[in-house]
Amino acid sequence: MTFLDILLQQSINGLMLGIMYSLVAVGFTLYFGVLDVINFAHGDFFMLGGFMALMLYAIAEAVGFAGNALVVVIYLFIGSMILTGVVGVVTERVCVKPVSKAPMLISLLVTLGLGIAIREAVRVLYPRGSDPKGFPTLMPQGSFNVGNIVIRYENLIIFGLGIAVIMAVNFLINRTKMGAAIRAVAQDGEAAMMMGVDLDRTIDITFLIGSAVAAVAGIMNGFYYGQTMFNIGAMMGVIGFSAAVIGGLGNIYGAIVGGILFGLLETFAAAALPYGAENKRVFAFLIVILFLVFRPTGILGEKIFERV
């Protein structure tokens, strides 16, 4: 492989990793925009989505429904989005909303506790939940070569789907009436309420969308890496949050930019720096800190003036 080949192959690796991060980052951006809450359990919803799909797949296999791969994939996505979405709304009603008015640290801690609870519940309740779980191979496995670079059909599908999901979320938020309500709440909850927006319902919908997107990300992650495990959510949450901030919290396209930037940073740090593989996250987090200090609104964020 020539230098250029390696560069291109690593860029593809970075983009794929980045799109996974972006999908998690979208959720953070959404929650922060609407509720001013950093939902640290979001990474665990991501994991939960993957496990829901595994469960649905096991059920489908048990009843002998395993025909067309495309049908099964659609069934897994929709089923898991609904289930994870419902869990998201229920947990939001029970434990996130009651503390959304409390100081920021309280909501942060509640969502962290929620993350622990989800993680441990999956581990204890799923059969042999502490082991890594293989994901069924349902995506087309072929590949084609451009020079020495391997491009897999699977990668193209996952990348395309990831961008499509994020654009769909953007459409929902910026082009529909429901989205207008969400944006209104994001700007000023009380004012939105006076204009006739049902606050509770809007918050419910936000969590439904956020959890469903996390589920999509979890399943795609499962398909791409071929496995999932109950404890992958914690790190994913931290990175997703970082990516959302780099891109600009509150901006949906910012999530894409931030996620992909973080993915590329990690990949190239691992590939190019001496001792890069073991220290790539040190490098990535250092960049995060620099961003926060020198451009806290992120790449696509707007300048915010502090109200006195």
């Binding site: 492989m1 996974m20 790190m235 190239f268």
Partner: peptide
């Protein structure tokens, strides 16, 4: 706690 090893493996491939 890392899931993506493509960067390391691409290096190995070369």
């Amino acid at each position: 706690d890392q899931q993506d090893y493509t960067a390391e493996l691409t290096k190995i491939k070369a």
